[in-house]
Amino acid sequence: MDGIAGRRPLLIWAVHLSVAALVLLWTIPTFGLLVSSFRDGDQLSVSGWWTALTPTERNIVYRAPAAEAQVEQAGQWVISGNVFEGQAAGEITKFGFSSKAPTAFDAGQSAELTKGRTLSVMANGDYRIASSEEMKGKRGARIFFTSIDPPRFTLENYRNVMFSEGIGRSFINTLTVTIPATIIPILIAAFAAYALAWMKFPGRSLLLAVVVGLLVVPLQMSLIPLLRLYTDVGIGKSYVGVWLAHTGFGLPLAIYLLRNYIKGLPKEIIESAKVDGASDFDIFRKIVLPLSFPALASFAIFQFLWVWNDLLIATVFLGNNEEQLVMTARLRELLGSRGGNWEILTASAFVSIAVPLLVFFSLQRYLVRGLLAGSVK
């Protein structure tokens, strides 16, 4: 017994460390996404979130104005300006005028260009191209430089997402899709689960096997046939079509989860109600449904998260109509044609999860409440 008792603390520590490791695996990426959502877009594109509090090194190419911008100063023709024009300023450490040697010179030095011209770039970004003769050409010289930028954080990413054109309409559209697509399958699945759990009728086991089998059918296989069917009956590209699609795809899991939960309810409660003359509908409405709130809340969370974050089904059954565009489709458009706006992507992620988090924390208490406590003596 001493040996067993002596091993228990070690086992407990192993469990605690495993849980802590799993929490870190889930928390670190989310924390990194949060940090990235507040970072400057230029810094985010060249460095990871873990460098957010340290200076960032960037290699930038600047095109100086053409010869028409030159002015005469003290007998020389000069083109001057600042390489950080239109950008956040940093500190320049190196510069060059060729892609083969972009860091050939230190900031403040003077570089010899062709045709007797000279180039100098200061640490603050000021540059000066000077020539003893009037410069010609329709294209300006390229200036390569390395900039050390201090950490920069901004709320501009969230402003671009939250106040972009059409985002409010897309938010309403997403709620219009998500709320019915969550409630409808729960209502249908609750009735079906009770029937499969407590009502005896021919083919019940076969029907349950069919429901379980539908869990492994890829929903992508049915998108085109369903869309053609909806178009033929006149509900294609409409909210009714997307509601029915989400209901059909969510019903197998809902019925399976609720049936297992309702089947595990104390048999004595159901039998006592039947002895007292209660019908199956009365038992379902007054006994089973209140006791099944934890299972109903669990599926409601899963279904709501699935529908809210869905892009594929909404695109197929609603299309890209501006009046019916959902949040995920709207945020996809904000990323640009090449999807390179990482600052928009990170901010969009947290904007889109605000409502699902609210739903999760609102229903979480039903997952842990002991509704069966005291129901059976």
Rank of each mutant, 00 (worst) to 15 (best):
S36M: 07
G41L: 06
S36P: 02
H16F: 14
P55E: 07
S45P: 10
R39G: 05
L22F: 14
W49G: 01
P9N: 10
W49T: 06
L10T: 12
T30K: 04
S47W: 04
S80A: 15
A67N: 04
D42S: 08
S36Q: 03
L11T: 08
S45F: 11
R58Y: 01
P65E: 02
E72C: 10
I12L: 14
E57F: 08
A74I: 09
T54I: 08
I12H: 06
A14K: 01
W77M: 04
L25V: 15
P9D: 04
L22C: 14
E57N: 09
D42L: 08
Q73R: 15
I79R: 00
A67T: 04
L17I: 14
L34P: 01
I79K: 01
A67Q: 02
A66G: 11
W13N: 10
P29D: 11
T27M: 12
S18E: 03
L17F: 10
T54M: 09
Q73T: 15
T27R: 01
A69K: 03
T54A: 12
Y62K: 02
W13P: 02
L25P: 07
T30D: 03
A21P: 02
T30G: 07
A67R: 00
V23S: 07
V61D: 01
N59V: 12
L53P: 01
S18F: 13
Q70R: 00
A64E: 06
A67V: 07
F38P: 00
L17V: 12
P9E: 06
E57H: 11
W49V: 05
D42I: 04
N59S: 14
W77Y: 14
Q76D: 10
D40L: 04
E57C: 01
G81M: 09
I79P: 00
A14W: 08
I60K: 01
L44G: 01
G75L: 11
V23Q: 06
V19Y: 11
V35Y: 04
L24F: 13
G48Q: 11
I28L: 14
G48I: 06
A74K: 12
I12Q: 10
E72N: 06
L33R: 04
I79S: 02
T56M: 03
A52K: 04
W77Q: 01
V78P: 00
V78I: 13
P55K: 03
G32P: 01
W13C: 11
G41V: 09
L33Y: 08
R58H: 07
P9G: 05
H16S: 14
T30M: 15
I12W: 13
A64Q: 06
D42C: 02
W50V: 13
L25C: 15
W26E: 14
S47P: 01
S37L: 07
V46Q: 13
R58I: 12
T56E: 06
A64Y: 04
V15K: 09
Y62Q: 03
S45V: 08
L22H: 05
F31Q: 08
G75V: 12
L22N: 10
T30Y: 09
V46S: 14
Q73E: 15
L44Q: 03
A52F: 09
E72S: 14
H16Q: 12
L53E: 12
R39F: 07
N59K: 14
V78Y: 02
S36A: 15
V35F: 09
